[in-house]
Simulated assay, not measured.
Amino acid sequence: MKRKNLVFYFRIYGKILAQDLKSKMSYRADFIISTLGMIFTNISGFVSFWILFRNFPSINGWSYYEMLFLYGFSLISLTPVQCFFDNNWSLRQYVYSGDFIKYCFRPINLFFYYQSEVFDIKGLGQFIFGIVMLVYSWIKIGIVFTPMMFLKIFVFLITASLVMIALQNAAAAACFWIQNSFYILDLVFRFKDYAKYPVTIFSPVFRFVFTFVMPIAFIAYYPSLVILHPQEVPILSWLSPLIGIVFFFISYKIWMHGAMKYSGTGS
């Protein structure tokens, strides 16, 4: 079979996305309610964050605006997994019902085809909220804006998002081998809430876990240091893009390995 190029996949994705958005807009009330729910969820998280800093002006040397920068950075980094990989939550049902077999007979990449079927537009509200927080804190901190600085934050935001995508891909793929895999996916997803905090506020054990076991520190903390503290950037911060790419590639291989072993019998 002839290998498809990127132009082909972009064109196919555009058509699939258009159909998905049409189906969502046919239930406008559900779309509006779920979107408002996402917005209020982010607002409530910010209110909790603001209340915390009303009592503690700084946390382990991190000021309010630096923490706000980290918060906004994490929201933006988490947006791609919310928008483009939300179908991972349905993978378990497709596998156990046997319906996943339909994806195995299309002449395109199986992972691409499955993930592209769903675009969670509610994630755009989170993205806008994160942008506002990032820009506001950027101004308050007084970071000098340059084209190189913009390039850095763009690259580190994109590659940081690959870490959470990788974690969710690997957790979702557990359903190919484990029946009660939902708890694995749910546990991994809940860990994202710790991404908005600097890893230095945790005990040495959790620092190790959040860096080398469940590497959520690479979703916001390590990448953001390149912008916030350019004079004292640890090696792990510079390695963040490479780590994001490697983790995503490994998770993709795990996901595809499980999909290729799928028998289609359901349960």
Rank of each mutant, 00 (worst) to 15 (best):
I12M: 11
R106Y: 06
V118A: 11
Y65S: 04
D120N: 03
P57S: 03
G14N: 12
Y64L: 08
R28G: 08
G72A: 02
G14A: 08
I76H: 02
Y13F: 10
F105W: 03
I108H: 08
K22V: 04
L52G: 00
R106W: 02
S90C: 09
G14T: 07
K22L: 09
P107L: 10
F49M: 08
S34Y: 02
F40E: 04
N60T: 11
L21W: 12
G45L: 12
S97F: 12
Q19M: 10
S74G: 03
W50N: 15
I108E: 07
S97P: 05
W50C: 08
L91W: 13
R28S: 00
I121F: 02
F85V: 05
T41E: 10
G98R: 06
Y13E: 07
D86N: 15
D120G: 08
M67T: 06
T41C: 03
A29P: 00
Y113T: 09
I39A: 11
G45S: 03
S116F: 09
Y13S: 07
F119S: 13
V81E: 13
S74H: 09
S63C: 06
F119R: 14
S116P: 15
N87E: 06
F84Q: 10
P57F: 03
D99W: 00
W50I: 11
P107R: 05
N42Q: 05
F73G: 07
L17Q: 07
F100V: 05
Y13V: 04
Y65R: 09
G61D: 04
P107Y: 01
G37R: 06
M38V: 14
F49S: 03
F73I: 07
